[in-house]
Amino acid sequence: MTPPPVTFEELFDPAFLATLSRWSLAARRVSGGGRHGARLSQDFGPGIEFKDYRPYAAGDDLRAVDWNLYRRLGKVFVRIFEEEQDLPIYLLPDVSRSMFHRDAGVPGIVAALRCTLALAAVGLNHHDCAGLFAFAQKLEVLSKPKSGPSQILPVARQLAQLAARPPGDRTDLPVSLRRLASLNLRRGLVVLISDFFDPGGPAALHEALRALRHRVVVIQLVRAADATPKIGGDVRLTDCESGEATDLTITPRVLARYQAAYKTFNNELSRVARARRAHHVRIDVEADLIVQLAPLFEPGAVSV
């Protein structure tokens, strides 16, 4: 039996989490209807920041009436404030077989789970709520959005269980994201953490994202072995997800065409993300994760 690529102890690394505690995610105004949080929402209600006046209507809280304005104008207005709510973060780690493929080096699932935990921890530390949805051929709801730093540990446990169980099937982004859209979740931030080796390519992602009403962050996990494979000669290439075999005589020309296709894929993925106004972050699974994630949380760098 193959040992899990990452254990709970490795995932729930105190030093890693300590680094995350200093990070925060800059977000635009969140949609209303959520719980009280630390982010400005589109709803008006009890709050600190003054927003505007409006004529009093029956049922308004009398504490909101601006009596000074009534004395000067003789009309009753109530003060309205911006309401601060939480940001729902929907974390979608890819658990398809390609993420567990370790023949060419470090499997991508390790970096995917650590990214997921990092984003969950950053959100939960700032009173946002985080939900966990693993996907492969279909979407699996692991935990509905919950808030509070106390949820970091359960999230880590769930992620460790993901690493220990058998990998999922093939990647099917359209099905998975359609399923997410069908859940009618409060508008929030969807974080897709995957290698995006969907048979449909970036076009499938583009199609799938159209159904989502959420803001999207695309975290693409890449490996040097995928960019420059060390394969030569006559080989039968077997897709670890689909099992399809492709006979090929790998020559420098073929290798060059592979690299061109890989580059095109990356470019296309970036273009799809830009078209969807999503943030696209490329993470090398074999490099230091903290260093690569840091720009995402730097003040003013990214606003979701």
């Binding site: 060419a104 080796f197 006559d234 592979y258």
Partner: peptide, 14 residues
């Protein structure tokens, strides 16, 4: 020689 890869997406194109 049989080689298992993460995806044959790009190899098919090549």
């Amino acid at each position: 020689r049989v080689v298992t890869v993460a995806t044959t997406l790009f190899w098919r194109a090549a």
